[in-house]
Each structure stands twice: as structure tokens, then as C-alpha cells.
Amino acid sequence: MKDNKVAQALKTWTSRLRTKKEERNAVCHVPEETRSDALISVRNLYKKFGKLEVLNGINLDINKGDVVAIIGPSGCGKSTFLRCLNGLETPSAGEIILENEYVFKNERVYLKRKMRAMKEESKKTGKPLPMDEFNAVNEEYLALRKEEKAIAKYMETAINLHRQKVGMVFQQFNLFPHLTVLQNITLAPMKLKKVGEEEAKAKAMELLKKVGLAEKANVYPSTLSGGQKQRIAIVRALAMEPEVLLFDEPTSALDPEMVGEVLKVMTELAQEGMTMIVVTHEMGFAKEVATRVIFMSDGVIKEENAPQEFFTNPKDERLKEFLSKVL
């Protein structure tokens, strides 16, 4: 009898906790009418560093299994874009949606700009402010602000969960020098996903075998060559079983003879259906492995196409110029 009561109380308590969590989570759900099949949707993404405008309205949908190659001149914001995708940078405006959940949303800046423009207009022309219209915009702004602040607040803690779904491979590898290769790989699965040690190790060894580095499991990173380090970095990201892998110029810091071994691993991954976004200067990889190629310049996507069309029939003038230089 007494046990029953305790069990009952516990049940209501946990269910209440769960609804609370769901309520908080619900602020991130994309409304029914704008849902899509895309794994990642980026809408009107802007990023400023102080006065420097780096991203000027990026729009991109990435589907499961896509291998997107991003090319473009240095300094055009490719790294910044990738870093926005996994929250290493906070965008200035726009939306980032992963699996129909907002990761970032800031649209209210447009309404604010609109209101400011209305005020300035009335000041300049001397006409009174169209109060009805202004108030309507203001109301919309306030509602949006409430929603977006709730999302931002939720993401303050959820961003770390989001990052577990979005793996990243860096130009400089960034392996942890104080840990062995195996420890590098198992650290995050064990500590973040609470995978057991045996299981994490088995999984790591399996992945290491796949990239041909099983015998390096117990050495420290500093004893490895650049190509080996980058392959380990890819394995480390894969061990978290991410939904998508971001590569920021993964072969740019490598000696030429090591580029091939890293590209080979990436090609295999692509063939297995891994969703990948790859910033690269390797036109061969973009041509042969990518399913879509994107040309970025001045913080916007200037051209996007299937690789064949992209390289044989470029339309944008800047792209033509760029390709003539790199091909």
C-alpha cells in the first residue's frame, strides 16, 4: 500500500520533470509549415566581426548523405561559416536549423531595422509616424524577441549536445598531445555519451583499422606524421557518431605526399553515406567525390551546382576567374 503511494509520487514527479524539459525543448521546434527534409538548413545567415561583415546572407540546405565541397578565395568566410554551424561562432542574424530544430535564430534584427528606418523616414520628411503600422511591427518584434531569447537560453546548455551531432575536423588536426591515440578517440564517447570503456575502445579500434592505423593505438600524437594525425582526427570525430562532419581545409597543412591518404579516407566516408561539408582547395576531391560544389565569395554563395556542371560550365565571373587560377 505504502510502496504504491511512493511509486505513484515518483511517477508524477518524473513525468512533471519530463514535461518541463519538453516545454523548454519545444521552443526549438520549427513550426509545422516550414519543416523540411533537410538535415541542416541555413537561412539568411549573417556574421559580423565588429564592423567587418564576413557572412552576408548565406542560404543553404544540406540533405542526409550530401557531400558538399565549399571552395572560394581565402578570407571569404568559409571557416567562419563552418564555425557558425557548430556554434564556435555566434552569427549576427539568420537561422540555423538541424533536424527541424533551431540551433540559432535571430530574425528580430530585421524588424528592428525596419522600425528604425520608419522613424528616420518620418524625421526626414516631417510626416508623423504611421502609428498603426509602427505598432504592428513593434508587437511582432516583441513576440519574436521573446521566442528567440527562449531559444538562445535553451541553446546555452543544449549547444554542447548539438556539437555532439556535428563533428569537426581542423586544418591543424588539434589532437590532444597529452593523450594517446586511443585516449584521444575514446575520451568524448566515454565522458559525453557515457559509453563503457570496453565498448568505446572496441569501436575506436574498429575505426582505426578502417583507416589503417590500428598499430598506432597506444602511441602519442607527436610521434605521428601529419597525414596520420589527420586520419586520427577524422576517427576521433567519427567515434561520436555525428550526423554531419565538417572539414575545414583538412589537407592544407599536410606535405603533398600525405594529402592522398587523407583524401582516401574522406572518399570512403562519402561512399558510406556520411554527410560532409568540406572546405577544400583540392579540386580533384570536389570534382570526383562531392555531390554538390559551392563557390563562396564576399560572404555569399555565388554559385552552387553538381560538380560536373560546376567545373565545365561555370557562370559566375568571379568563379571563372577563381577556377582559371586554381585549375
Binding site: R163, M168, Q172, R236
Partner: peptide
Amino acid sequence: DKGQMEAGRAMGFTWLETMIR
């Protein structure tokens, strides 16, 4: 190296966890 913090954060560790581990 600054890249160490970025790598830790990108994996999903919090700032403090990355700092400590």
C-alpha cells in the same frame, strides 16, 4: 595552443570540462 580549446568545445565538452580534461 588555442586549437585545443576549440577541438574540445567542438566535440561537445563545456568550457570548464575542456579546461579540466
